[in-house]
């Protein structure tokens, strides 16, 4: 069976112009935001790290990876993710048209921006995305200083 990827836009001549305009918008957005993933690590999985007042949140896209195949270890200032994405095999009789998704093992270490409390780290997995919540260590949490009136 032949499967052909659509290269032509479906919406006629103006669709192409519209696409070009959107492409420019996108380039402009990326250029002006100054904050887009140019920071490629070359290691799977790519991660995003967010900072809150009391904790860090790390997210990683791990579609098709079973949580039981992922191992996370945390120290005060680093996080290691190891695991395996098993090939989603169609069985012996399957013949492939395309194979873009890839499979294999991964191990990655991420240096955290600041000290965390390794005992209170929680990891969840939802819709193929891994969420790791890392509470900051007590000594690095921001403290509010009361000003005493003399």
């Amino acid at each position: 069976m032949a499967i052909i990827r659509l290269h032509q836009p479906l919406g006629g001549p103006f669709a192409e112009l519209d696409r070009i305009r959107r492409e420019f918008d996108r380039l402009f957005d990326e250029f002006t935001s100054g904050f887009f993933p140019g920071e490629r690590s070359g290691v799977f999985p790519p991660v995003n790290v967010y900072e809150g007042k009391e904790h860090y949140l790390l997210t990683a896209e791990l579609p098709g990876v079973d949580p039981s195949d992922v191992e996370i270890t945390v120290t005060e200032d680093s996080l290691t993710i190891r695991g395996e994405r098993k090939p989603d095999d169609g069985g012996e009789s399957a013949n492939y048209h395309r194979r873009e998704r890839g499979s294999g093992t991964f191990r990655r270490v991420i240096t955290l921006p600041d000290k965390v409390n390794p005992d209170k780290v929680e990891a969840t997995s939802r819709r193929g995305i891994l969420y790791v919540r890392l509470p900051k260590a007590e000594e690095v949490k921001p403290r509010q200083i009361q000003i005493k009136s003399a």
Binding site: R5, L6, L10, P37, E39, V47, N48, Y50, E51
Partner: peptide
């Protein structure tokens, strides 16, 4: 939250194929 590292962007997904 404010981002610290950003190695990927979230987005929707879209793809089309012509079937025989």
């Amino acid at each position: 939250l404010s981002p610290v590292y950003r190695e990927y962007r979230e987005g929707h997904f879209y793809r089309q194929f012509i079937l025989s």
